[in-house]
Design a protein around this nucleic acid. Structure first.
Length: 667
DNA sequence: CTGATTAAGGTGTCTTTGAAATTG
DNA sequence: ACAATTTCTTTGACACCTTAATCA
């Protein structure tokens, strides 16, 4: 029995035929090809002709089934994983946000401020005090003075505070984050509170993050409004991020230890001083030269595993994930300051290098002294609309509002003048971000659209062109309208207004057997494919169903009532959403209609989900009373049944015991 | 050589009113 | 015997996206 099935397996590979009829022919021919042993041949000869068919058919079926179930299991697993990824990302983001929030509190510590002040040379302290309307009435001049003072402060800090290469927060891919921590991992510098910070301040030594924290604290100590800016490095939720990490990942599966080392190379490579980092045997050492590698060496080396994706970036190219924004009162602007690299007011330098896998700019949050925060990602991400927002959950343009709701927890409940100014800056940035320069940049762009990228159920209306891209018209995303067929509008309780023409015609879709047949009939008659009209929301109105007259509920062709949304309940009617009410209503001779609240799918059939009934208002009480009574009755019945059962069991037990006793007494 | 195109394969969305067997 | 209820199983077509290879 084993032989035919194994042969069948092989022949299936040879000629992926799955039809039982073909097997009769395929099986012998594949024997010849395989050149099997005589034993198997004799077996085949011994077996009567029909036997292979009898065996193969069920196996073929079960195999196909197995394939299907496997595919389904894969899909389910993928879905589950996707959920895990997304939730992990969200949770991680919130954790990092709170971590930053707490650190932002720490750096308000008055003792820390005093300590830092005591370490700061007087001339630098004084340079801030000198900026005042009294001494310098011209705001432009004051702004310049302020910037110069911040520059001096940053330079002084940069020269004196020693930054060690590890210990700061880095971005990890999902798989990396799942992995157990390794001994040689980049361990984060532990900070337990303002006291830990103070120790670092005294020692003039700490991680990048510590440097930024202390610098922000110092600014606040000096009376300069300063924000702690944090670029949250949460695990990416998208699978593609993992894949593009390529060889690192695939190697890790076989050799987790090597992975740890490989990662160490990545992290160490950030600080080019750490040129003595470890290397795995397989990975080619990335040149530690100062020149940055833009392209990959994929062309020269075909083998996947041999292509390392480590890029050595100079210290100057490694952007921090924490920095400071100081507020220039004179020109009402926030100036970014990177104390680690001595960079003042050069926001473009804070966006990480695209090759820097340890720093992904997705959320940049600025915490102010009062603990409130604002999302300032737009200021730093060059292509904020084009690229950055796309890597937030909800994906693409369909934002699910999650991030907004998270930020609302830390947003100041009232607005300041400077908030308005900042928002204006954001709007200006959005407009001047400019059109993307590539086709891919236009795809899912929040501001611009090309006609080729709109969906089947979308239309550009009005067609107001705002530019051209390689001969194609560019439109504003706000002019894209989502459309639905009249049936689909009905599913959300809306009806197409009379006299409105569809904005677009698309091929009608048929998924159920019933509907497909109907469409085919129509096609055979007219000789052309049936089309379906799509309408915009503005072309529709709220559907008002016919009211209840004399207690009679309006019904559809199936004898039910459509109640996809509450607004579809007719005037004078009530929805009683309890199971079993239909039976009671019928017994009471009340006119009713079962409420269809949705659909469920089974075997290509849409099946309505019935949720209770709709009856006239005047019958509600009667029906409900009867319903609760029936529920009560059912409970009572159940209780009686239970008691009876209990009594029965007790009786049985006692009888048993009595018999046992008698037996013991007698013998 | 970058970025567009394309092909292939995977993923996501939309679809939208049974039949058979068993029980009371 | 008949009606009511439970169980059965979990689609399929196609748009759209991603990825890798190829092309300009």
């Amino acid at each position: 029995m084993e032989t035919p099935s194994s042969v069948r397996d092989m022949s299936e590979f040879a000629s992926s035929d799955e039809d039982g009829m073909d097997w009769e022919e395929v099986v012998p021919s594949s024997y010849g090809q395989d050149g099997n042993t005589g034993l198997q041949d004799t077996l085949e000869i011994d077996v009567p002709g029909q036997q292979p068919i009898e065996i193969t058919l069920p196996t073929a079926k079960s195999k196909e089934q197995a394939k299907k179930t496997q595919a389904r299991a894969r899909t389910l697993e993928w879905r589950a994983q996707q959920v895990v990824r997304l939730e992990s990302h969200k949770l991680h983001t919130v954790c990092l946000l709170s971590s930053a929030w707490i650190r932002n509190k720490w750096i308000n510590d008055p003792l820390l401020h005093a300590r830092l002040m005591s370490m700061t040379p007087m001339p630098i302290q004084n340079s801030f005090l000198m900026i005042h309307k009294k001494f310098q009435p011209d705001p432009v001049q004051r702004g310049r003075l302020f910037q110069a003072a911040v520059g001096r402060l940053t330079k002084w800090w940069h020269e004196n505070f020693e930054v060690h290469p590890n210990g700061h927060i880095t971005s990890k891919t999902f798989n990396e984050a799942l992995r157990e921590p390794q001994a040689d991992d980049n361990i984060r510098e532990p900070l337990r509170g303002p006291k830990s910070l103070m120790k670092h301040a005294l020692a003039w030594y700490g991680s990048r993050d510590t440097s930024a924290l202390l610098f922000t604290a110092l600014c606040r100590a000096l009376g300069v409004p300063a924000r702690l800016v944090v670029s949250l490095q949460s695990v990416p939720w998208r699978r593609s991020v993992e894949r593009t990490d390529g060889p690192d990942q695939s190697a890790s599966k076989k050799d987790p230890k090597g992975k740890g080392k490989a990662r160490a190379v990545e992290n160490g490579g950030q600080e080019s001083s750490a040129s003595d980092t470890l290397d795995t045997g397989k990975t080619k050492p990335a040149p530690k030269s100062v020149t940055k590698l833009k392209g990959s060496k994929r062309k020269s080396i075909k083998s996947r595993s041999a292509t390392p994706k480590h890029f050595s970036l100079t210290a100057e190219e490694i952007s921090p994930t924490m920095w400071t924004e100081v507020f220039s009162r004179a020109d009402m602007r926030w100036l970014p300051v990177d104390p680690i690299r001595n960079i003042v007011n050069q926001r473009q330098k804070l966006e990480p290098h695209p090759q820097d896998k340890a720093n992904r700019m997705v959320y940049v949050v600025a915490f102010e002294e009062d603990g409130f925060a604002r999302d300032v990602t737009f200021r730093y991400a060059k292509a904020f609309g084009g690229v950055t927002v796309k890597s937030r959950p909800g994906g693409k343009l369909r934002t699910d509002g999650w991030w907004e709701s998270v930020m609302s927890m830390v947003t100041r409940p009232y607005r300041l003048k400077r908030d308005d100014i900042e928002d204006e800056e954001f709007v200006i940035k959005q407009v001047t971000e400019g059109m993307p320069t590539s086709m891919t940049g236009f795809k899912d762009h929040p501001v611009y659209v090309l006609e080729r990228h709109i969906r089947q159920t979308e239309v550009i209306h009005p067609k107001r062109e705002v530019g051209k891209f390689r001969g194609e018209s560019v439109y504003h995303r706000s002019n894209v309208l989502a459309l639905k067929s009249s049936e689909n509008w009905m599913r959300v309780g809306r009806r197409v207004r009379e006299g409105h023409q569809p904005l677009k015609m698309v091929k009608a879709r048929a998924t159920t057997v019933h509907r497909r047949r109907a469409l085919e009939m129509a096609q055979a008659e007219t000789g052309e494919e049936s089309l379906q009209g799509l309408y915009s929301e503005a072309q529709t109105e709220l559907f008002i169903p016919d009211p209840v007259i004399d207690g009679k509920i309006p019904k559809n062709d199936f004898g039910n009532i459509d109640l996809y949304v509450p607004s579809m309940l007719p005037r004078g009617a009530v929805h009683v959403p309890h199971k079993g009410t239909a039976k009671i209503a019928r017994e009471l001779k009340i006119d009713y209609a079962e409420a269809v609240t949705g659909f469920e799918f089974r075997k290509g059939h849409g099946i309505p989900i019935l949720t209770g009934v709709v009856v006239a208002e005047e019958h509600e009480e009667l029906l409900l009373d009867a319903y609760w009574e029936s529920v009560h009755d059912a409970e009572e019945k159940e209780r009686l049944k239970r008691t009876e059962r209990v009594i029965q069991r007790w009786t049985k037990l006692i009888h048993g015991l009595r018999i046992r006793k008698r037996m013991q007494e007698q013998y």
